[in-house]
Simulated scan of single mutants.
Amino acid sequence: MSEKDRKIRVAISIGDYNGIGIEIILKTLKEKEITELFTPVIFASTKLLSHQKDKLNLDRINFQGIQDASQIVDGKINVVNLWKDTIEVQFGKVTKTAGEHAFQSLKAAAQSVTDGFTDVLVTAPINKDNIQSEEFKFPGHTEYLGEVWGGFPLMFMVAEKIKVGLVTQHVPVSKIAQGITKKSVYSKIQQIHKSLVEDYTVQKPKIAVLGLNPHAGDNGLLGTEEQDIIIPAIERCKKEDKLVYGPYSADSFFTSDNLEVFDAVLAMYHDQGLIPFKTIAFDEGVNYTAGLKYVRTSPDHGVAYNIAGKGIANEESFKEAVYLALDLFKNRLDYAELTKNVLQHIPLKLEKGDNKE
């Protein structure tokens, strides 16, 4: 089988194994037919996964244990064995070792995409505290992948009904205003526009931009960031023939009518965009890191220690993350094929008697 014809290979990092990460991974892969759609490659150990598989009574799942990503077997659920030791799982507890293993899984999975052994990355939730180390000093997956893959990562929360991008991501509330500049707002609009065109095949995207202050500043009465920063960034985009509108007041924007009009929304900070997003699309919502060379998706929830090990975690968001990664990978290939210069300049050979002037 040629590289072009093989199924898409999905690298999967397990996140914090004391949370629900492995449970939602296994539930997503439990149907035998799943390997007809893609080839899963989980970065962990067969011992760890078998322990949780038995606990969840998922007897139909069989693993193909390999030692390196170069040994992937298509049509199987591959497990790259990163560890040989038996791991003590402590559901619901925050442990240093769980954070260390979460990082090892993420690092190896991301590297496999870089090396071309896998095609896309889907990440299970991490604990942003216990994963911190000398190698991982980032607020989350988004910033880490921006470092190792290069590019300008955009946290793009996506679902069928709503897509939300953020200007500032994982920063304290006290520092949000410092991150709102003409350059940052403009660049995030550009990233959303580029993703909608290349990843979602929207020819003329319509993008709504929210204000920073209550009531979008009320013409300067409640803050001047809208007039001084956000509106100039929007006007610049309009001069480039982009359909960008706003700033809108965040408290009244997220209605069904508005969401039908726009292809995506740019929020100024984390909670401004994610509270309405998770309210509207929690089960099927996906965290997509746009703006990178490779596709990375993740469920839109955290480690959920409170239900870990109970077998009641909902895998729908993780499943949607996998399917979205497959769709985005295909869309990127199609876009690259459609936009490449297939017509080369061929000098015309003049026939005898043609005018040579």
Rank of each mutant, 00 (worst) to 15 (best):
R6S: 11
K7E: 02
I8P: 11
N18G: 04
I20D: 04
I22L: 14
E23G: 09
K27V: 13
L29A: 11
K30L: 04
E36A: 01
F38H: 05
F38K: 00
T39N: 05
I42W: 06
A44N: 01
S45A: 01
S45D: 05
K55L: 11
N57K: 15
D59L: 14
I61F: 01
F63K: 10
D68Q: 03
Q71T: 15
D74E: 09
G75C: 07
G75F: 04
I77S: 03
N78D: 08
N78C: 01
V80C: 08
E88M: 10
E88F: 13
E88Y: 15
V94G: 00
K96F: 04
A109Y: 13
A109W: 13
Q111R: 09
V113M: 11
T114E: 08
G116E: 12
G116C: 15
F117M: 10
D119H: 15
D119L: 10
V120Y: 06
V122N: 10
V122G: 12
T123A: 06
D129H: 07
D129K: 13
N130P: 00
Q132K: 11
S133L: 06
S133G: 07
E135C: 02
P139N: 02
G140P: 04
G140H: 00
E143P: 13
Y144W: 13
V148T: 12
G150C: 08
F152L: 08
P153M: 06
F156S: 06
M157K: 02
V158G: 00
I162W: 03
I162Q: 03
K163Y: 14
H170G: 10
H170Y: 14
P172I: 05
V173F: 12
K175W: 11
I180A: 01
K183W: 05
K188N: 12
Q190G: 04
K194M: 15
D199Q: 05
V202Q: 06
I207D: 00
A208Y: 06
N213A: 03
G220N: 09
T224A: 10
E225H: 12
E226W: 08
Q227R: 09
I231R: 09
I234G: 10
E235V: 08
K239W: 04
E240F: 09
E240Y: 14
S252K: 10
F254T: 01
S256P: 07
L259V: 05
E260Q: 15
E260M: 10
V261P: 10
F262L: 03
A264K: 08
Y269A: 02
G273Y: 07
G273C: 07
K278Y: 02
I280P: 09
I280R: 06
E284A: 13
G285D: 03
G285R: 02
N287S: 14
K293I: 04
R296E: 00
T297Q: 03
D300P: 06
D300K: 03
D300A: 13
H301Y: 14
Y305A: 07
N306V: 10
I307R: 09
G309K: 03
K310Q: 15
I312E: 14
N314Y: 12
E316R: 08
E316C: 13
D327C: 01
F329S: 08
R332N: 06
R332S: 05
L333P: 01
D334P: 02
Y335K: 01
L338K: 15
K340T: 11
K340F: 07
Q344W: 04
P347D: 00
E351L: 15
K352W: 08
G353L: 00
D354V: 07
D354S: 11
